[in-house]
Nucleic acid binder design. Structure first.
Lengths: 193, 193
DNA sequence: CCCAATAATTGACCGCAGTCATTTTTATAT
DNA sequence: ATATAAAAATGACTGCGGTCAATTATTGGG
């Protein structure tokens, strides 16, 4: 017989996430250790893994939460400049660091369900689709394909550019990132016409 | 003063890679343990990490090697059907498993230099660019953008579709993959017109 | 041929993610 | 109330990726 989820379950989960938020804010995702999360949250190690299948899934939940908040103020772009600005904003967030790229690669798809990742991505895609639709009717976008499909393709381009923006150790981060941004710009124009 | 690389260095590296190849062939990338690689190669653990910065970089080298061999027979597509077939071939290889997707995300960019990853990706992009150029002149592709940029964008779409093809544990793998393939098809048509 | 200087290798060791048998808490049936 | 079955939490333990000071092999100069 199935029973309803207990209130303390959600409370524990929240304490873990809150602890994670603090740690990431202080030292970034790469430096987050589950032992410390658990210490701050006041739970045992096993509890962590009863709530999240692994460290990455936990980080993905935190990441989705943060990005969703950051993107909350997004408005559907009304011209090419605004569309570019929106894409740049998303690119900057996605390309922030190697951890972010890895988490997006793993959880941007079906694997991200129930972590908020799917909601975050959908939010971005919806805004993009709205913007594309507007620009199409105004003749500011040559490509007549379905706005939803174009939006998804734009996301794909952003993902790829973000991955390309990660540089090898001791590489020139500035230059690599500039090249990735230029690539995104070119690909976007190739897609939208 | 810098000295030339010793012959045994390359020999050791090859023994490690050969061991890795065997292990991956037998049990897939996910099950590869460095201890076993080292055991088969007849070296110490430290030697492994003197040659490869971490397990993933080693796997990426193996993956690039395998994919490059698989793609060796690629011919530049001459019509839309052949282009689709080529994209499907690459998609199938990239979407093979979650490990592959993760490695591509991490090493498809500048981080993959010197692992063969860059060469593998460039090979695919070049073929795609050739194909796109041919189809453009034959009027089989509406999009007039630079073939090189279009080829890179196509790769981005394939990467994204491959990531979308990974399903959560206990999901219906067949259905998820079918959806990802359909998505790739739609995005490709949206891009090429 | 010998002797520094450098490159390559070694393996004991460590940190941390992830496991699981056990214990504690909570919900429900009687 | 009390029993009992399910859910949640516990923490000692394990396995494996990665490190590093010490050791061995190679090279090139005198």
């Amino acid at each position: 017989m199935t029973r309803k989820v207990q209130a303390r379950t959600l409370a524990t989960r929240d304490r873990l996430l809150a602890a994670g938020r603090e740690i990431v804010a202080a030292g970034g995702m790469a430096g987050l250790r589950t032992e410390e999360v658990v210490l701050r949250a006041g739970t045992a190690k096993g509890t962590f893994f009863a709530h999240f299948t692994d460290r990455d899934q936990f980080l993905a939940a935190l990441l989705a939460e943060g990005l969703l908040a950051e993107f909350a103020n997004m408005a559907a772009p009304q011209d090419r400049t605004q569309l570019t600005a929106l894409l740049d904003q998303v690119f900057s967030a996605f390309a922030a660091d190697a951890e972010t790229v890895a988490l997006l690669a793993r959880f941007s798809g079906p694997a991200g369900e129930g972590l908020g990742m799917d909601r975050m991505i959908c939010a971005v895609i919806e805004r993009l689709a709205e913007g594309v639709a507007v620009l199409q009717t105004r003749g500011l976008v040559a490509n007549r394909a379905d706005p939803g499909v174009l939006a998804e393709a734009l996301m794909a381009l952003v993902f790829h550019a973000a991955a390309s923006a990660q540089c090898p150790v001791h590489g020139d981060a500035r230059a690599v990132r500039a090249r990735a941004e230029a690539l995104l710009q070119q690909m976007t124009e190739a897609l939208l016409g």
